[in-house]
Amino acid sequence: MDDLEFRRRIMSDPKCRDSELTAAIKGSESNSKFADEILDLDSQIAKAMSVDVPEDLADRILFNQTSSHQDDKVVRPNFAKRAMAMAASVAFVVGILVGQVNWGNLIVSPAQASLADTAVKHVINEKSFVEQLDEKVQLSQINAKMEPYQHQLSDSFPYHVYYLNHCGFGKSNALHMVFQGEAGKVTLFFTGLSSAQAESFVKDGMSGFVEPIGNTSMILVGEQGENVAKIAEKIATMIKPSI
């Protein structure tokens, strides 16, 4: 048995002493010394691995896990959170101080913003389709399309109507009309979705206006600079419940 094979077998099993290994150990002082060193190292490793486990170790682990889980649920305010809380308090005080200011035309509520966003997106998506149409829509056709929303026009529509149909409007439906305004074409949506108050908006280079009419809403979208608020006021006075 050569030295390499001897060392490999001793390291793989330090306690093995078959005839070949015994002969190699007795026949070489270096082999005998190496075998003793490996056997001693194996004994040290075994001793190091043999550690008595405390009887209450399991209870300690469970306790620490429970404590950590409860600590995770405790909200400890850090600097950023305290700063946000302070900012909110300041904003509240400022809101009280300026409560007499009419912010209606400056701040659009989330519900109103949703109507505005839906209307503008619809106008952009269908612009290429409707811009070449001229259906020369009549009053009777408009009232027929408004019937599902239980409203109708009390007088002739004061603008030339190029296009009229129903369309999907967010999670609802709407009457979709395109007519000639003062500065260009204006798109009107009449939907069963309610709105809180009349508000104007500007988005993606277009001017718009949300006009609540009972439990329904009229949204106008025109080119930027179009006085959609004036048009909305004029049309709104003509829309009456049909029942």
Results as ranks from 00 to 15, higher is better:
Leu41Gly: 00
Gly95Asn: 05
Gly99Ser: 08
Ser50Phe: 11
Lys73Gln: 14
Thr66Ser: 15
Gln100Ala: 13
Ile107Leu: 06
Val53His: 01
Asp72Gln: 10
Val94Asn: 02
Phe92Ala: 15
Asn64Asp: 12
Val108Met: 05
Val74Arg: 08
Asn102Glu: 03
Asp56Pro: 11
Ser109Glu: 05
Leu62Met: 14
Leu39Lys: 03
His69Tyr: 07
Gln100Phe: 12
Gln44Met: 08
Gln44Tyr: 11
Arg76Asn: 10
Ile45Phe: 03
Ile96Gln: 12
Asp42Arg: 12
Gln44Phe: 11
Ala48His: 08
Met84Leu: 14
Leu106Met: 08
Ile107Gly: 00
Lys47Asp: 09
Phe79Val: 15
Ala83Thr: 12
Asp71Pro: 13
Asn64Val: 14
Ile38Val: 07
Ser89His: 12
Asn105Thr: 11
Leu106Ser: 06
Ala91Thr: 14
Val75Gln: 06
Ala111Gly: 05
Ala83Ser: 13
Ala85Asn: 13
Met84Ser: 15
Lys47Asn: 08
Ser89Trp: 05
Ala48Met: 05
Val75Ser: 01
Asp71Glu: 05
Ala91Phe: 04
Phe63Arg: 14
Ile45Lys: 07
Gln65Phe: 09
Ala80Asp: 04
Asp40Cys: 14
Val53Gly: 01
Val101Leu: 06
Ser43Val: 06
His69Arg: 15
Glu55Pro: 02
Thr66Trp: 06
Ser114Arg: 06
Ala80Trp: 00
Ile61Cys: 02
Ala91Trp: 01
Met86Trp: 08
Val94Lys: 04
Ser50Pro: 00
Gln70Trp: 00
Asp40Arg: 13
Lys73Val: 10
Ala46Met: 06
Met49Trp: 08
Val75Ile: 12
Phe79Trp: 10
Val90Cys: 02
Leu97Trp: 04
Leu57Thr: 02
Met86Pro: 02
Lys81Arg: 14
Pro110Val: 05
Asn78Cys: 09
Asp40Leu: 11
Val108Asp: 03
Ala88Leu: 14
Met84Ala: 15
Val108Gly: 05
Ala91Cys: 01
Glu55Phe: 12
Gln70Ser: 13
Val90His: 04
Glu55Ala: 09
Ile38Thr: 03
Glu55Asn: 09
Ile96Tyr: 07
Trp103Ile: 10
Val51Pro: 00
Asp72Ile: 09
Val93Asp: 04
Ala88His: 14
Asn105Ile: 01
Val74Cys: 05
Ala85Met: 12
Ala87Val: 15
Asn64Ala: 14
Asn78Lys: 12
Leu41Tyr: 06
Ser89Thr: 11
Asn78Leu: 08
Ala58Cys: 13
Arg82Lys: 11
Lys47Gly: 10
Ala85Ile: 09
Leu97Val: 13
Val101Met: 01
Ser109His: 00
Gln100Trp: 14
His69Glu: 12
Ile45Pro: 06
Glu55Tyr: 04
Ala83Trp: 00
Pro54Val: 04
Val51Trp: 01
Val53Asn: 02
Asp71Cys: 10
Ser50Lys: 11
Ser43Cys: 07
Gln100Lys: 14
Ile96Met: 10
Phe92Trp: 09
Ser68Thr: 12
Val51Leu: 04
Phe63Lys: 15
